[in-house]
Amino acid sequence: MCFIIAIVGLVLGFNFFMADNYIAALGSVIVSVFFIFLMIRNIQHVKKLKQQKRDDDS
């Protein structure tokens, strides 16, 4: 879900930039970067949980 929101935000940011609406473009890019950050943080968290589960099973 974060990936989809980030892609939509980047596309909106590009469209706003092409329409010379720089404030809206910046806002869309900031939202996209935030959701990319959340996605990366979640991936790292799940990877850590899987590693802990693998260590506990061994």
Score class of each variant (00 low, 15 high):
26 L>W: 07
52 Q>M: 13
58 S>K: 15
4 I>H: 08
43 I>V: 11
8 V>R: 03
41 R>P: 04
28 S>F: 04
17 F>G: 00
55 D>V: 01
55 D>E: 15
41 R>G: 13
14 F>Y: 14
20 D>F: 15
30 I>A: 13
5 I>Y: 06
48 K>Y: 08
34 F>E: 00
44 Q>D: 12
39 M>G: 07
5 I>C: 05
47 K>Y: 05
39 M>R: 13
53 K>E: 13
12 L>K: 02
23 I>L: 08
43 I>Q: 01
33 V>K: 01
40 I>Y: 09
12 L>R: 10
44 Q>W: 02
38 L>H: 06
2 C>Q: 04
9 G>H: 04
58 S>C: 15
52 Q>R: 03
6 A>M: 06
24 A>V: 09
5 I>P: 05
24 A>R: 10
8 V>A: 04
9 G>D: 01
18 M>T: 14
31 V>E: 01
47 K>F: 09
33 V>F: 11
25 A>H: 00
54 R>A: 07
49 L>P: 03
30 I>E: 04
12 L>F: 10
42 N>R: 09
2 C>W: 08
45 H>C: 04
24 A>S: 03
52 Q>T: 12
32 S>M: 04
31 V>F: 04
5 I>N: 07
32 S>V: 00
43 I>P: 13
42 N>I: 15
31 V>M: 06
41 R>Y: 14
22 Y>S: 08
34 F>G: 01
41 R>C: 12
40 I>P: 07
34 F>L: 06
6 A>G: 06
27 G>F: 05
